Structures are given as C-alpha cells and as structure tokens.
Simulated assay, not measured.
Amino acid sequence: MMTRRAIAAALIGLCGLAGPAAAQAPGEAARAAAEAIAAAQARLEAAEGARDRVAALTATVRAFEAGLAGIRDGLRAASLREAELSARLDARETEVAQLLGVLQSLGASEAPQRLLHPDGPLGAARSGMLVASVTPALAQRAQVLRRDLEDVATIRALQQEAEATLREGLAGVQAARADLSRAIADRTDLPRRFTEDPVKTALLIAASETLDSFAAGLSEIPAGPEGRSTGDIGDRKGALPLPVSGTVLRGAGEADAAGVARPGIVVATQPQALVTVPVPATLRYRGPLLDYGLVSILEPQPDLLFVFAGLGTVFGEIGQVLPAGAPVGLMSGRPPSPSGDGALSPASETLYIEVREGAGPVDPLTWFATDKG
C-alpha cells in the first residue's frame, strides 16, 4: 500500500502535468475541399452544353485539382494530428496507472484511518486541504484526456469521409481530362498567326544542340504578316500565375542532383496536372526537344519566349494564338487510381520553366508570382 507521502507526491506530480486544451481538430480545409470537389462535379456536367467547352472543361479540371489538393492537405494534417494525439495518450499510460494506484489506495483505506493523521488534527487538516486543492486539477486533467480521445475519434471519422470524397474526385478529374482532350482535338475556332513549316522545324531541331540555339533559330522563323503576339505584357511582369499548380522545387541557376544548373525553375506537381497559358500567346513550338522531353514554347510578345518542358501530353497547333488560361498540355506520370492507391503521394512530376528575353534567359520568377511571393 502507498504511504500518504507517496500518495501526496503522486497527486502533485499528476496535477503538475496538466496542459492546455487540445488544439482545434483539423478538418475545415478538408471540408472546404470536399465542397470544391462537389462544385467541380456539377461544373463537369454543365460543361456538356457549354458554348466554349474547352474553357469550361479547363476550369473544371482546375477546380478538381484544387479540391484534390485540399483533400490531400487535410488528410495529411489529420494523420499528423492523430499521430500526435496517439503518442500523447500513449505517454500518459504511466500517469493513468499512477492515478489508479492513488484512487485504489484511497479507496482501500478504512474510515478510521482516513480520519486520523500521525501529526494529529493539524496534519489531518493539511491533508484535507491538499486533497481539496488537487481535486479540481485532477478533473481538469481528466477533461483534457477525454477531449483528446474525442479528437482522435473525430479525426478518424473525418479521414474516412475525406477518403471517400478523394476517390470521387479522382474519378471526376480523370473524366474531365479525357473530355478536355477530346474538346481540344475538335476545336477549330482559334486564330492563327502563321502555319507551321514542318521542314524548317525539322531542320532546326536537327541543327540545334542546345535550347539556346533552338530558341535563337525559332525566333528567326517568320511568324507571318499579322505579327507574332497580341500585345505588350510588360505591366504584368512579376504577377503572372504559374502555368501549373505546384511548388517551386529549384530556382534559376540551382544545380540538380547530377550537378547540372539550368537558367529556369523547376516546379513539383502532381501526375497528369493541367498546364495552361498564363497570358495570351502564340504557340511557336510543341513536341519533343533534345533531352527536355515534350516541350511547349509560347511567345506572348516579340522577343519573349516561355518554355515549358517535361510535359506528358501537349495540346494546340503551332501558329495558334492561345487565350489566357488555355490548356497547353498535361504532366506525365500515372494518376492515382480512384480506389485511392497513391492518392496521398507527394508531387512526383516536375515542370521545367524557362523564360527568354531577347537573346538569353532570365530568371522566370521575374515574370511569375508564387504563393511565397
């Protein structure tokens, strides 16, 4: 049996461990993302009768991607929170056992023992004051434990609901991407600045050993009498949206794992993510190029080229003038299955973005804005 001194020490130690109330359980972001998925599904159905199906489907794919990103973020946050709470509860097993020992000791004491104290009435009074002072703290501690247990249960329910929404969203975005590809193939309403000369393009590719030489040769191919762009976009410098949803993984001039440094930036993104035109631009080239994979090169204004490399699918016809927000391709990679396989995997594809002004490259972040400013 524990002595009264041991009981007092245990109670004081247990009460001293009482912490602040548990943080608000994560879930708001996941709920908002679920609403975005539902809205995207409705938009996909409405796109069937849209006057401009390409624009409607592009917006639909973007909405799905935003919703899926929110669901993924919410699930990761929920998993981290659950792990944190579980670890905290596991660590409290000793505290709970200690508390039970205290209560058992108090409960096993006979009535005369509880009324008497070796130090007489004064010691008994002090013991009573000690118990009275620690009881509210014990109740508060129990409340914190109960709240943590409730948080774990809430988070697990949220995860199940979010995973079901994630599966629906993955199926929806795949359907929207397929519809978008068909709508682009059927599109005939875009203006053209020039008609591609396949022979000149093939000769230029064969003669080019670097992106520099290809871009220089491309600028020498005339774009037709109507000009090469839709106007000056200098006033939007530094404020253009990235062409794909993702995170800048490597800045201009930073070396990769192989020690190769390039003047463009690398954006990490999800498989099959949609890549769009940030501003109206003429499509100067699309297709394979050197070791860059599939490439789209856009010309928003004279002496300015945007190079997007590493695509899995490219859209559009060379010479077309694409409106802002128009799709130019999809990233490569295998999309997660609607069953949820790989749905929470980190961004695994990378888009290389290079901006060329005049005769050479510039840091793309002088033109594009990111969420980090």
Rank of each mutant, 00 (worst) to 15 (best):
R156Y: 11
E95T: 04
A46S: 12
Q41L: 10
G310R: 01
A216H: 11
T154G: 07
Q98I: 06
R92Y: 13
A8N: 02
E35R: 12
A50E: 04
R5V: 15
F306V: 00
D73T: 14
T350Q: 15
D186P: 00
L249Y: 09
P136V: 02
D235R: 15
V144F: 02
E196R: 04
R286H: 09
E354T: 12
L190I: 03
Q159I: 04
L304D: 12
A38L: 13
L211T: 11
A39K: 15
R51G: 14
K237I: 14
L330Q: 04
A268S: 10
M129E: 03
L122R: 15
E84M: 10
A178M: 07
R88P: 08
A39F: 08
R356Y: 03
G128M: 06
G74S: 07
D291I: 05
I353L: 14
A38T: 15
Q270E: 14
R141L: 11
T350F: 14
V144C: 12
G342N: 11
R236T: 09
A6M: 12
G310H: 00
R250A: 06
V152G: 02
L57F: 13
L17V: 02
A111P: 13
E168T: 11
E254I: 05
L75M: 13
S337F: 10
A176C: 04
S127L: 13
A18S: 01
R51P: 06
R262M: 14
L116T: 11
R72L: 04
A87V: 07
T154P: 08
T276H: 06
D303N: 12
Q104A: 12
S127H: 12
A142W: 08
F315H: 09
G67Y: 03
L89Q: 13
R72H: 03
S337P: 07
G325K: 14
F194I: 03
A34E: 07
Q140P: 03
D151L: 08
S296N: 10
V328G: 03
R236M: 13
D148A: 11
S208H: 09
A47T: 03
G227F: 02
R146C: 12
Y292T: 04
G319M: 13
I353M: 05
K200C: 01
A183V: 01
P225C: 12
G101E: 05
G373Y: 02
S348N: 08
L170G: 00
G19W: 14
S208V: 08
A132Y: 02
L158E: 10
T247H: 10
A23V: 14
A309C: 04
A38G: 15
L100R: 11
L170S: 03
A29Q: 13
Q41I: 08
Q104C: 09
L290T: 00
A139F: 04
L365T: 13
